[in-house]
Computed example of a mutant assay.
Amino acid sequence: MAYKYQIRLTDVTLRDGMHAVRHQFSTEDARAIASALDGTGVALIEATHGDGLGGSSIQYGFAKETEEDYLRAVCEVVRSSKVAALLLPGIGTVEDLKRAVACGVQAVRVATHSTEADISAQHIEEARKLGLETVGFLMLSHMTPASVLVEEGRKMASYGAHAVYIVDSAGAMLMDEVRRKVSALRDGLPSDVEVGFHAHNNLGVSVANSIAAVEEGAARIDASLCGLGAGAGNTPLEVFVAACEKYGIDTGVQLYSVMDAAENIVRPRMHRPIVTDKASLTLGYAGVYSSFLLHANRAAEQFGVDARDILVELGRRKVVGGQEDMIVDVAYAIAQEK
């Protein structure tokens, strides 16, 4: 068939998917999933702790394996795709990045809040010096006007990013907003800097949002097998590829291969089904970072309150990634008001 669009896919099962398994994938799990993905046609396979390099901690949750063991396990089996890592300045450091490169990582995605691109300068510049494919990640983009996203994206491009992503970390966007923001970023960046889009499925529209992003000029899209990820998960890779085939979008990915990988490799390793339950739906409704869900559930149980009330209040306060300590404060305040 004649394709209308051509894009590159990044699979995030082994990074964002870590949130859904409490960061407990083993090196054996990592090898099995990476092997299944390699050769399917996905351009990049992202693999780190859910919160990126250096994320294994008491604050973000300890991983089952050391970072080096986990990354080496993935890099040892991947031959066709590139292996990428996520780095959040303030959690991960340049030294963490250098260790990841020593393990075999070939690309890095440097993530900041959508108004704080300036803190990515050191990491993006160092990544380019290390010869890495380098991507800027503007998280919680639903909180930021399109004009500001363009300004922040230009900063990342000026530091050396090959691509800049609009990231719907809360799964709070609908299609019109995606179109407006992706189009503005595409028009505002140099032509040689690609635009990407990363969706969460908390409102059940991640596939539709991702297709809308492609129509507006996004050349890179993120997805994960079985939609594994925080909250109601990411754009499910196998569903998105199938939809793209019907819609005329060339992903370069073999549909049956990713269907098999999802069904036979990832699904048996899932701790729970990825569903749009009341808590994850509230994430999208309130516009709260999807990785807050497990923390909110724990705080709700500790203080005997409704996790939805915690999430809505966090959204009202416009809490962003890195402010996880506020979850307990909010839960305590709600409990005191009872």
Rank of each mutant, 00 (worst) to 15 (best):
G252P: 03
R316Y: 10
S291N: 11
A232C: 08
H271F: 10
E301Q: 15
R317H: 01
V305L: 14
R267D: 05
D192R: 01
G321C: 04
D260Q: 10
T251E: 10
V275A: 14
G196Y: 07
D222T: 04
A279Y: 09
E263A: 13
S280H: 14
Q323L: 02
A299R: 11
A242C: 08
L311Y: 08
H271N: 04
H198Q: 07
C244R: 03
V312I: 14
Y285H: 11
G304Q: 06
E194Y: 13
S291H: 09
G229R: 09
A219I: 00
A218D: 01
Q254S: 13
E194T: 06
A208W: 11
G204T: 08
G231E: 06
V305Q: 06
N234V: 02
I211Y: 07
A307Q: 07
A262G: 13
G233C: 02
L294E: 13
E216K: 14
E238P: 03
A307E: 14
I249W: 03
N264M: 09
G252V: 04
R316F: 03
D192N: 15
N201T: 09
K278R: 15
L293Q: 15
V195T: 11
N209M: 12
G196W: 10
S206W: 09
G322A: 00
Y289L: 03
Q302P: 00
E216T: 09
S291F: 07
A296C: 14
C226T: 14
K318A: 13
G287E: 04
V275Y: 06
R272P: 00
